[in-house]
Amino acid sequence: MAEAGGAAPHGCPGTSSAQAGRAAACQGCPSRGLCAAGGPAASDPAIEEIKEKMKIVKHKILVLSGKGGVGKSTFSAHLAHGLAKDETKQVALLDIDICGPSIPKIMGIEGEQVHQSGSGWSPVYVEENLCVMSVGFLLSGPDDAVIWRGPKKNGMIKQFLRDVDWGEIDYLIVDTPPGTSDEHLSIVQYLSSSQIDGAVIITTPQEVSLQDVRKEINFCHKVKLPIIGVVENMSGFVCPKCKIESQIFPPTTGGAEKMCQNLNISLLGKVPLDPQIGKSCDQGQSFFSEIPESPATSSYRNIIQRIQEYCGLHHSQEKRSNQGME
């Protein structure tokens, strides 16, 4: 980020510095107030509590995208469904899109309520080994808007991590809103001492989406969040009548494939547009069971397998380095 307007004064500490707006050079700079406004958050005792809680959560995966409406929630939900196929695994899905929670609808549990127990909020169970938490369960109706500024959203995310009775979990999947702001900084910060496996980044093929996604990738680098890989969603549509493929969101700059090459990140796969996917999501059903034969579904299966492999590898590496330390 450059200076917020006009020329930066000599010795500008940079807008992302802890000294932003406070250094001697900032005196008299027109952007001083702006730079000083977003100071770094002081370390929060909750981070330690969350670390304790997360000790029994084996893998933590964030689903991110700079762009909205590219399929983060659809992907998160079906990653959860896919991982929960293995009945020996416990899977939890946490929706931190506070202003636009879609997960309850996609998982078919809209209107459910969370219960308070001695050990905290109980998440909502979709299956025996698959549970969900979302701000959607705390609202009184579908018209209820969550008109909150950052600090309140951050407080909610903290509560979701610290006060939900997650229990022993193999995979915690976190679905995020678009952007690189409060929710993203908070989740990374709160999980900072509990090792996130990495982030899956979702995009659509067109440049307008990729340009936001590149920002998200820079965000990951900035906060030192490992990137598991990129999923290109809505990539091509096969007309059900004539079977000819059209590019609805044309990859004018080479799509995710080119971007991944340029940035040296792995492309986990491409998922074609299938109207059945949207329909399944609207009805709250898993398309693994609704349309098991669709090319989109098999592409999803491959991607999930690659994520499982990544997590397995990540886990054994971590174990090794821990043993090395001891």
Partner: peptide, 17 residues
Amino acid sequence: LLEKPDDAVVWRGPKKN
């Protein structure tokens, strides 16, 4: 206002406001 087009604006609320 960005130096590079891919720069991420990692700002919390108050700065955005």
